[in-house]
C-alpha cells in the first residue's frame, strides 16, 4: 500500500497473526469444520521420535549414500 504516514511502524512480526487466522478460516471453509486445536496436524506424528537419552543423538555416517 502507499505510505499513509511519515513514521515507520513495526513490521518484523506483523504478518504472522493475520496469516495464521486466514489459514484457519480457509481450513474451516474448505472442510466445513472449524478447527479448534492448533496446529491442525498436532495429533498426527509420522515418525518415531529419537530417544531422550543420550540427550544429543549420534550423527549418521551414511552421508555419501545421499549425494545428488
Amino acid at each position: 500500500m502507499p505510505n499513509t504516514s511519515e513514521s515507520p511502524s513495526g513490521a518484523g512480526e506483523l504478518a504472522v497473526a493475520p496469516a495464521f487466522a486466514a489459514i484457519a478460516c480457509a481450513y474451516a471453509r474448505a472442510t466445513g469444520t472449524m478447527p479448534t486445536y492448533f496446529p491442525i496436524n498436532h495429533g498426527k506424528l509420522s515418525f518415531e521420535p529419537l530417544p531422550v537419552q543420550p540427550s544429543t543423538p549420534q550423527s549418521p555416517t551414511d552421508g555419501l549414500d545421499h549425494t545428488f
Binding site: G10, L14, A19
Partner: peptide
C-alpha cells in the same frame, strides 16, 4: 479462501 486482518505496531495488514 480465507481472510484475516490485524493491526499492531501502528501498522495494518490483511491476508
Amino acid at each position: 479462501q480465507g481472510v484475516g486482518v490485524h493491526s499492531e505496531y501502528r501498522a495494518a495488514v490483511a491476508t
